[in-house]
Design a binder for these strands. Structure first.
Lengths: 203, 203
DNA sequence: GTCTATAGCCCGATAGAC
DNA sequence: GTCTATCGGGCTATAGAC
């Protein structure tokens, strides 16, 4: 399609977002300068402003894109079966997504406080929508008698925190394979709410 | 004991640490300026340096004091009985401590990346020592046949993350009392590792 | 599309008066 | 023990050359 000149348009933009994601996750939004992002990309600081109007918008768009992606991805993963099986699938999905995109996830949970009020409201709505998925699963599990959960919102918060925490210690190539980690976290999640997979039921 | 003049010595120091703790927890270490801390205390920025040699040391000392306190407090709380009962006690202790000192806990877990290497090494050692408490409980539970834990370090990480997450949502005066929160989290922790309190056993 | 230069501001930390 | 003033530098974002 022969661009008139210069370097790869449509390539630097994603590289800027990748660099920002990596650095925000590693050091925190407030601790990362636009100069540092530019240096990571290999351009001058001024050139960044062709790709984002400002630093805050860069953060906001990273967070929004991630949350919209995770919500959409779950919609395609949801097995829509028995609540215990959905919880198993949700735990595995959440772990998988977090291990695939640890930086984006870390930012989405940790940098809420760095958002300006209008941006915060948008992100908070998306975050609540994602957490509502788990609350719905737990509520269905209680209704079906498959789970013992005294307080659904509390249990959902506790499970999300547990699952999200995987990013703080898991490193590729370590002692455990990803599949093992998924399985173990899913087992703990089921156990925490007194559930078991339908395939494990004794009739 | 009649100080020669001026304001309350021995009082401003703790106020500086309290202000720093509050602001670091709310906005993150990197986002908080020494001027902001001074304003919170009600003194000029220059006067801060009578209480800390620099900003980094302020963070380091907050984190070290907190971790040493939590380790010492557990040593006095540990019921030293059956592993399942110790896990129940640990979960309640951890929740209590976190709800009593949410700012200190939040900083201790979130600002590790803001520490300079020498300080990081000290804090990381303390943090590992605290997490080893839970690993020891789980290992004892497995050995006693009271718990089903396929991987002790993973389970310890998962439980710590779950319990610590309480600070992200619990607010005093909300829907749930602290005692309820402790009980529910302890139940989930026990369930996650397939354990139950000795008082709940069926013989 | 990227560069260099810079405006305007805030930063951590220090010096010295009181 | 606190103040004011300040040093030296980094920050975000913009302007204008190429």
């Amino acid at each position: 399609m022969a661009r008139p000149s210069g370097s790869d348009a449509g390539v630097t933009g994603p590289r800027v977002r990748d660099a920002a994601e990596r650095l925000f996750a590693a050091h925190g939004y407030a601790a990362v300068s636009m100069r540092a992002i530019a240096a990571e990309v290999g351009i001058g600081a001024g050139a960044l402003y062709h790709y984002t109007p400002d630093k805050q918008t860069l953060l906001f768009q990273l967070m929004r894109a991630h949350l919209e992606e995770v919500i959409a991805a779950w919609a395609e993963t949801d097995p829509k079966g028995a609540p215990a099986d959905r919880l198993d699938a949700f735990a595995r999905f959440h772990i998988q997504f977090h291990l695939d995109r640890p930086e984006a996830v870390f930012i989405a949970y940790m940098e809420l406080r760095a958002l300006e009020p209008d941006n915060f409201a948008v992100i908070e709505t998306l975050r609540r929508r994602y957490e509502a998925i788990l609350r719905d699963i737990l509520a269905a599990g209680v209704a079906a008698g498959e789970m013992q959960v005294a307080d659904v919102p509390l249990a959902a918060n506790a499970l999300i925190a547990m699952l999200t925490g995987v990013t703080t210690w898991y490193r590729e190539g370590g002692r455990l394979e990803r599949g093992e980690v998924e399985t173990l976290y899913a087992q703990m999640a089921l156990g925490a709410v007194g559930a078991q997979k339908s395939s494990a039921k004794t009739f």
